[in-house]
Deep mutational scan, measured.
Amino acid sequence: PPDDERKKAEKAARSGNEEKAREILERLGYSEDEARELAKRLR
């Protein structure tokens, strides 16, 4: 489910793995720019 994926992205971002967070968010349908912004904010 998307919620689980989003949680994974948050966890990745918090542990400093912004790249992985961005990949997950892009898979969820965010654009590259949106995903980058979100990954930064989740950190």
Rank of each mutant, 00 (worst) to 15 (best):
P1K: 13
P1M: 14
P1G: 14
P1S: 15
P2L: 14
P2H: 13
D4K: 11
D4Q: 13
D4G: 08
E5N: 05
E5F: 10
E5H: 07
R6V: 14
R6S: 05
R6E: 07
R6D: 03
K7Q: 13
K7D: 10
K8A: 14
K8W: 09
K8L: 14
A9R: 02
A9D: 03
A9M: 03
A9T: 04
A9Q: 02
A9V: 06
E10H: 08
E10N: 04
K11A: 15
K11Y: 14
K11S: 11
A13F: 04
A13D: 02
R14G: 05
S15C: 12
S15E: 15
S15T: 09
S15P: 03
S15K: 08
S15R: 11
G16V: 02
G16P: 02
G16Y: 04
G16K: 04
N17L: 07
N17I: 02
E18Q: 07
E18D: 06
E18V: 14
E18I: 15
E18N: 04
E18R: 02
E18P: 04
E19G: 07
E19A: 13
E19W: 08
E19R: 12
E19L: 13
K20Y: 11
K20N: 06
K20E: 12
K20A: 11
A21M: 05
A21C: 05
A21F: 08
R22D: 01
R22N: 02
E23D: 07
E23W: 08
E23A: 12
I24Q: 01
I24T: 01
E26W: 01
E26V: 15
E26Q: 13
E26K: 13
E26I: 15
E26D: 01
E26L: 15
R27K: 14
R27V: 03
L28M: 14
L28H: 02
G29V: 00
G29F: 02
Y30H: 06
Y30D: 00
Y30P: 01
Y30F: 09
S31G: 07
S31A: 06
S31Y: 00
E32M: 11
E32D: 06
E32V: 12
E32H: 12
E32A: 15
E32T: 12
D33K: 10
D33P: 07
D33H: 11
D33G: 09
D33M: 10
E34W: 04
E34S: 06
A35D: 01
A35W: 02
A35F: 03
R36Q: 07
R36T: 06
R36Y: 08
R36W: 07
R36A: 08
E37C: 04
E37A: 12
E37F: 06
E37L: 10
E37S: 08
L38K: 03
L38Q: 03
L38D: 00
A39E: 04
A39R: 01
K40D: 08
K40V: 07
K40N: 13
R41M: 12
L42E: 02
L42F: 13
R43W: 12
R43I: 10
